Amino acid sequence: MDEVILSIRELKKNYGAKSVLNGVSFDVKRGEIIGYIGPNGAGKSTTVKIMLGIEDDYHGEVKIFGDDISDGKMEYKRKIGYVPEIAELYDNLTGYEYLTFIGELYGLELDLAEYKSKHLMELFGIGEVYHSRISSYSKGMRQKLLIISSLLHNPELLFFDEPINGLDANSVMIFKEIMSQLAAQGKTIFYSSHIMDVVEKISSRIILLHDGKIAADGTFDELKENNTEGSLELIFNQLTGFSEHKDIGSRFVSIVREM
């Protein structure tokens, strides 16, 4: 039987009078790459923040590695890696200082953290800024640093929120290969993005959230079978009821052309 790494039952979350999650339930098994998608405000980031222990005051059950996270224990976080959509980095630190600091936070010896950080930055094409301050990094360099920091401690469960923002095409290819090989080795990946073609290609399973509920859950082929549209982007539009993109695009361009 496949090991369930993550289990959510009837997850509900309100912000004041606004309901964000309305009874979300799913299981994630070891080695799956979950593409977690939905329109802005659908509840994707809220779900992830609850699983990470950043958000509380929710209803329902969240189990990670078989343990209910509501018990307040922190041990499960040592086996998790996270790349947020927006992250604050310590600009006055160098890449070396930042990564060894993160590594030691997760219990790595300094020598191992230094070895890993140096070689991973070199492999990701940013070895030349290893001893440069992060304030001098480009957006792509910062994103690579975040990805490396999330993997430094060899986590079992990874949460990626728009992880390829700012990456060039070659780096995206490297990142996709990293994810594929991690999943093949039994790592579990929870991937949230608005870039539908990437989600379509890398995900072993896709969960679509709409209005705080699951609107679809399955492989890309299963989603295609159950919907009339072909690409994930078009399936997304169909399931979320958005079909005005062509009209809005035409009206937008017509205004741009006015003299």
Rank of each mutant, 00 (worst) to 15 (best):
A216L: 10
A215K: 14
G218H: 09
F220Y: 14
T228C: 13
N227L: 06
S231N: 10
L232H: 04
L234T: 07
F236A: 00
D217G: 06
L234G: 09
R205A: 03
L234F: 11
K201D: 12
I202V: 14
A215Q: 11
N227W: 02
K213N: 09
L234P: 00
K201Q: 13
E200P: 09
L208V: 05
I206R: 00
L209Y: 02
E233Q: 15
L232M: 10
I214T: 02
E225R: 15
F236Y: 10
L234V: 06
L208F: 03
L234D: 07
E233N: 13
D221V: 12
G218N: 08
E222P: 09
E222F: 06
I214L: 02
V199Q: 01
L208Y: 03
A215P: 06
K201N: 08
N226A: 14
D211T: 03
I235K: 03
F236L: 07
G218W: 05
L223C: 11
E225W: 11
G212L: 02
T228V: 15
G212C: 10
E229F: 14
I235T: 05
G218Q: 08
E225K: 15
H210I: 09
G230K: 15
I214Q: 00
F236G: 01
E222D: 12
K224M: 11
L209Q: 03
S203E: 02
V198R: 06
L209R: 00
I235Q: 01
V198S: 04
T228W: 10
T228E: 15
E225S: 15
L223G: 01
I235F: 07
L232I: 02
E225I: 12
G230N: 15
I202F: 08
V199Y: 01
I202L: 12
E200C: 05
I207T: 04
T228S: 15
I206A: 02
I202N: 07
V198L: 12
E225N: 14
I207N: 01
L209I: 09
I214H: 06
S231M: 03
I235S: 04
T228M: 13
F220I: 11
L209K: 00
K224W: 05
L208P: 02
D211V: 03
D217V: 09
I207G: 00
D221Y: 10
L234Y: 11
E222K: 12
L209N: 00
E200N: 08
G230R: 14
I207V: 06
S231C: 10
S231P: 04
